[in-house]
Amino acid sequence: MTLLLSWIGKDSRKISSAYIASDSRFSWSDGRKFDYGRKVYALQNSPDILGYCGDVLYPTVILTQLLDMDKDSILFPKNSSNRERVQIVFNQIKEKSAYYPESKLAKSIEIIHISRDNEIDFVCFIYKWTIETNWTISEQEIPLASDKVIILGSGKDEFYNRYLDYLKGNNGKTSRALFQCLCHTLIDIKDLQCGGAPQLVGLYNKFNGKNFGIIYKNQRYYLGTKIHKLEETSNLEWRNELFERYNGITKQILEGAQRQPNDLNI
């Protein structure tokens, strides 16, 4: 299964960022696992990010296709709004699944889609499939302050129980608290369907979807896969387990970057 979560960051005036993060483990009923699976996606030519949990193969196939369609500017009409893009993505996912053998799907699929219009109009929609209901689409409320938007997957209860402890700390409802809680949960999670390194995509007020590199247990990871060597020409933004801005080459905090306190000492 998965631990999949999304949240927004808000400054004193407006929503400044939105994120989707997950673990990296694919697991099977026979106990086998693969800890390098991609579960989150950032579109390069539009301000949209997505992540999934549940069935693995179908979402991987369709979201990868949508990613490339967006890259080559054939997915969305020019100047389409965030809600128009949401409907286009949902239609693509729903229509293609009609040709996919239902017997090969897991019990459910859930996909988070966060989309932005202008600089501050963020929306979040959940696409869900079950054999009983087929595909449904629902809008998820965006919080008024920095906080989680939704938590999904088999690991959600372990995450949330630990997050209650983070909420009691000085960091409270912040992006760093949510990401720290994800890393903390994955380090000693009891649900063996979840594991591997955290992976992260995001949206700022400007620009399109963004992938992040993660320094986790002093190793580099990019969308679930380990990066052994990094060229100096890379301009990827890196974060560590505390959500501090890191240098991906040296694996040290960037000069001038703000330190992020950690109340629970992961």
Rank of each mutant, 00 (worst) to 15 (best):
T130S: 15
D121V: 01
E110V: 01
E132F: 11
I111H: 08
F125N: 13
D117L: 08
E110L: 01
W129R: 12
H113A: 08
L105C: 09
W135K: 05
S108H: 14
T136M: 07
I131A: 13
L105F: 11
I137E: 14
Y127H: 09
K128R: 07
T136N: 13
I114N: 05
H113G: 05
D117V: 00
R116T: 02
I111D: 07
I109E: 03
F125Q: 07
I131F: 11
D117C: 05
T133R: 10
N134I: 02
H113F: 10
D117P: 00
I126K: 15
W129E: 06
S115K: 08
S115C: 15
S108F: 15
E102R: 09
I109C: 06
N134R: 13
I137K: 14
E119G: 01
T133H: 09
D121E: 09
D121C: 02
S138H: 04
S138I: 01
F122E: 03
D117N: 13
A106C: 06
W135P: 13
I126Q: 09
F122T: 01
T130W: 05
I126R: 14
F122G: 05
A106Y: 10
A106S: 11
I112F: 03
S108T: 10
F122P: 07
D117Y: 04
Y127S: 12
K104F: 07
V123E: 10
F125D: 07
L105H: 04
C124R: 03
I137G: 00
L105E: 03
Y127L: 10
D117R: 05
I131E: 14
S138T: 08
T136R: 07
T133K: 15
E119D: 13
R116S: 01
E102C: 01
F125A: 00
K107F: 06
I109K: 03
T136C: 04
E102H: 05
N118D: 07
W135N: 06
T130Q: 11
W129N: 03
T130K: 13
I109R: 08
E119Y: 08
C124P: 00
K104V: 08
I112A: 00
E132T: 09
E110R: 13
F125V: 12
F125E: 06
T130M: 02
S108G: 07
E119K: 14
I131R: 15
C124E: 02
W129C: 04
